[in-house]
Computed example of a mutant assay.
Amino acid sequence: MRKTHDIGFRNFLHQPFFKPSPNPRPFKAYSFVPFSPLAMLDPTILTIGGIVLGIAIIERVLERWGVIDLSDQFAKVMRFILPVTFYGALLYFFATFMF
């Protein structure tokens, strides 16, 4: 049976009656978000990103060289390819990511 201990209000405010235990108990921490930035290093996503980046660089080089017609054709194609590639890679990433 535990003993009860009366503490006055002034003593409660000014004296620490809580004594921490000498050996704190270990506890397990769990994460509900199993996300790692290293998961973005998927070879498929890196390959798709490299291809899109290469096409964008080719477009800029053609623009500098003065081949505006071909550069405009690349720009028209990229307006369609970039969003489709981004959402496709995002869908692929979440479909293959192990939760």
Results as ranks from 00 to 15, higher is better:
Thr4Ile: 06
Tyr87Glu: 02
Phe97Met: 04
Gln15Gly: 13
Ile51Asn: 07
Ser36Cys: 09
Ala75Trp: 01
Ala29Asp: 06
Ala89Gln: 03
Ile51Val: 15
Ile58Gly: 04
Pro34Val: 00
Pro43Arg: 05
Val77Asn: 07
Thr96Pro: 07
Phe9Gln: 11
Ala29Thr: 09
Pro37Asp: 02
Met98Val: 14
Val33Tyr: 10
Ser21Cys: 10
Gly66Asn: 05
Ser36Pro: 02
Gly88Gln: 08
Arg60His: 05
Lys76Asn: 15
Val84Leu: 04
Asp42Gln: 05
Leu90His: 02
Gly50Ala: 14
Phe9Ile: 04
Arg64Glu: 10
Pro22Asp: 09
Gln73Gly: 11
Glu59Cys: 08
Thr44Glu: 11
Arg10Trp: 05
Asp6Pro: 06
Ile7Arg: 12
Thr85Met: 07
Phe35Met: 10
Thr96Arg: 10
Phe80Met: 01
Thr96Ser: 10
Thr4Gln: 11
Gly50Cys: 12
Thr47Tyr: 00
Ile55Thr: 10
Ala75Asp: 11
Leu91Phe: 14
Tyr30Gly: 03
Leu38Gly: 12
Ile57Gly: 05
Ala39Met: 03
Thr85Ser: 10
His5Val: 15
Ile58Lys: 09
Phe97Pro: 13
Phe12Asp: 02
Lys19His: 07
Thr44Asp: 03
Pro16Ala: 12
Val67Cys: 08
Pro34Tyr: 07
Leu13Cys: 15
Val67Ser: 07
Pro16Lys: 14
Ala89Asn: 08
His14Thr: 14
Pro26Cys: 01
Thr47Ser: 06
Ala89Trp: 07
Ala56Gln: 08
Thr4Met: 04
Leu38Pro: 07
Phe12Gln: 08
Arg64Ala: 00
Pro43Gln: 09
Tyr92Ala: 00
Pro37Ser: 03
Ser71Met: 04
Phe74Gln: 01
Ser31Asp: 14
Pro34Met: 04
Ile48Gln: 01
Ile81Ala: 14
Phe86Ala: 15
Ile45His: 07
Glu63Tyr: 07
Leu53Pro: 08
Asp42Pro: 12
Ser31Asn: 15
Met98Gly: 04
Pro22Ser: 14
Gly8Leu: 11
Phe80Asn: 02
Phe86Ile: 13
His5Leu: 14
Pro34Trp: 00
Val61Glu: 05
Ala39Asn: 15
Val84Asp: 03
Pro34His: 13
Asn11Arg: 06
Arg10Val: 10
Phe27Arg: 01
Phe93Met: 07
Phe9Val: 14
Leu13His: 05
Thr85Leu: 01
Glu59Ala: 05
Leu53Met: 10
Phe32Glu: 02
Thr47His: 02
Thr85Phe: 01
Ile45Arg: 03
Phe74Asp: 11
Leu70Arg: 05
Arg64Met: 04
Arg2Gly: 15
Glu63Gln: 08
Ala39Ser: 13
Met98Tyr: 04
Ser31Glu: 12
Lys19Asp: 12
Pro16Val: 08
Leu46Asn: 09
Ile55Gln: 08
Val52His: 02
Ile68Asn: 02
Phe32Ser: 04
Ala89Met: 12
Ser36Thr: 11
Leu90Ala: 15
Leu90Arg: 06
His5Cys: 10
Gly8Tyr: 06
Pro24Thr: 08
Arg25Lys: 14
Ile45Met: 08
Pro43Gly: 03
Pro83Cys: 04
Ser36Glu: 10
Phe17Glu: 03
Asp69Ala: 12
